[in-house]
Amino acid sequence: MSAVPKVQLSGGLEICRILNGMWQLSGAHGKVDRVKAVEEMQAYVDAGLTTFDMADIYGPAEEIFGQFNSQLKSKFPEDEVPSVQSLTKYVPRSGPMDRKVVEKALRRSMSRMQVDSLDCVQFHWWDYEDKRYLDALGHLADLQQEGLIRELALTNFDTLRLEEITSRGIRISSNQVQYSVVDQRPSVRMQEFCLANDIKLLAYGTLAGGLLTERYLGAAEPRARVELATASLSKYKTMVDSWGGWSLFQDLLLALDGVAKRRGCSLASVATRYVLDRPAVGGVILGCRFGIAGAGRHVAESLRSCGADLKLAAEDVADIEAVTRRSRDLMATIGDCGDEYRG
C-alpha cells in the first residue's frame, strides 16, 4: 500500500489528504466507548492516517484525542513518538470577543487535547450580522503570532466573508466546507478565490453521511426516522432532496457504481476521489465513528480513496457529471458554502 498523500498548509503544517473526522462523537450517532475509541484511533495512525479533525463542540472528541495523544506519547521515547496532526474548531456563541474570551477557549481545547499548542484552529461564526467575528479573528491572528496556534483556518465561511477577512491581512490556511458529488457549491465561487490566495478547502459530507455508498444503490427512499437513524443520514438526506430527489440520486449512484466497477474499487472511493481531485481541495474529512458499537472501520477504503493507483479518467468524470448537470442549482436554492447554517 502506498504512503498516504500529504498536503502542506500555508503555515507549514503537513496533513494527510484523508482526515479522520470526529463529528460522529458529538452525539446522535450512538454511545461512545472512550477506551475503545482510543484503541481504534491507533489503528488509523498505524495505517498512516495521522490527521484528526474535531471541535470544541463535538462532545468528548477533544478529550478522547487527548487520551489517545497521552497514550501515544507514553509508548515511545520522546524523539520517536509518531507524528499526528490535530485540527480543532473554535465555535463560540455570539457575544463579546475580547482577547481574554478567545484565549480562554483555546487553552481549554489545549488542556482537553493534552497539547502545548494547537496545530490548527478552524473558526466558525453563526451570525454574519454580528461583526464581532472580526474581533475574534484579530485575536486569533495575534495568538498565532505568539505561537499558540500554528494554522488559522475557517469553517463554513462563504466567499464574501473569506474575501473580507483576508483583505484585513489575516492569513487563512483553509476553509472547511461541505463538498461532495451532490453538493458542488465550492466550485462556483470559492474555488477560484482559494486558488489565488493559497487557501485549501477541507471537504466534509463527501459521502453524504453514508448515502453515497452501495448500501443505498437500488434502495427504496428512506423516510422514517428509524431509516435515518443518525444525524449524518438525516442531514444529508435533506441535502439530496434539495439537490434533485431520490430518483436522480439513484441515477448518480448507478453512474458512480459503473465507475467503481471499472476501477476495481468501492462506490464510496469513487465519490471521495472525485472531490479529492477538485481544484483547491487539500483534503477530505471522512467520518470515523470511533468507539461506537456496530460502526465499521474503513481504514482500507480510506487508503484506497487517496491511493496513487486510483485514477479517474475523463470518461469516468463525464459519466458522473452527465447526472449532476441535471440537478438543481444549490447556489440558487441554498446559497454559498455554509449558508445552510445561517438561514
Results as ranks from 00 to 15, higher is better:
Met1Trp: 12
Pro5Gly: 01
Leu9Asp: 06
Ser10Val: 10
Ser10Gly: 15
Gly11Phe: 04
Leu13Val: 03
Leu13Trp: 03
Cys16Glu: 12
Leu25Phe: 00
Ser26Ala: 13
Gly30Leu: 03
Lys31Gln: 15
Val32Glu: 00
Val38Glu: 00
Asp46Thr: 10
Ala47Gly: 00
Ile57Ser: 05
Pro60Glu: 02
Ala61Leu: 04
Glu62Gly: 02
Asn69Val: 05
Ser70Asn: 12
Lys73Asn: 12
Ser74Gln: 13
Glu78Ala: 12
Glu80Asp: 15
Ser86Lys: 14
Arg93Gln: 14
Gly95Ile: 03
Met97Glu: 08
Asp98Val: 05
Arg99Cys: 06
Val102His: 02
Glu103Gly: 01
Ala105Phe: 06
Arg108Glu: 06
Met110Phe: 02
Arg112Ala: 06
Leu118Val: 02
Leu118Arg: 01
Cys120Gln: 14
Gln122Val: 04
Gln122Asn: 11
Trp125Met: 04
Trp125Phe: 03
Trp126Asn: 13
Tyr128Cys: 11
Asp130Ala: 03
Arg132Val: 02
Gly138Lys: 05
Gly138His: 00
His139Met: 01
Gln144Val: 00
Glu146Lys: 07
Gly147Val: 04
Glu151Met: 02
Thr159Met: 04
Leu160Arg: 13
Arg161Val: 11
Arg171Ser: 08
Asn175Gly: 02
Gln178Thr: 12
Ser187Gln: 13
Ser187Gly: 09
Val188Gln: 11
Met190Asn: 09
Cys194Val: 06
Asp198Tyr: 15
Ile199Gln: 09
Tyr204Leu: 08
Ala208Glu: 12
Leu211Cys: 05
Thr213His: 08
Glu214Trp: 10
Ala220Gln: 13
Arg225Cys: 15
Ala229Met: 09
Ser234Gln: 15
Ser234Met: 13
Ser242Ile: 09
Gln250Tyr: 09
Asp251Met: 15
Leu252Cys: 10
Leu254Val: 08
Leu254Lys: 12
Leu256Thr: 13
Ser266His: 12
Ser266Val: 12
Thr272Pro: 13
Gly282Thr: 06
Gly282Asn: 04
Val284Ala: 13
Ile285His: 07
His298Met: 14
Ala300Val: 10
Ala300Thr: 10
Leu303Cys: 02
Leu303His: 02
Leu312Met: 06
Leu312Ala: 01
Ala314Leu: 10
Val317Pro: 06
Ala318Leu: 11
Asp319Arg: 11
Ile320Cys: 01
Ala322Glu: 01
Val323Leu: 03
Arg325Thr: 10
Arg325Gln: 15
Ile334Thr: 02
Tyr341Gly: 08
Tyr341Val: 04
Arg342Leu: 05
Gly343Lys: 14
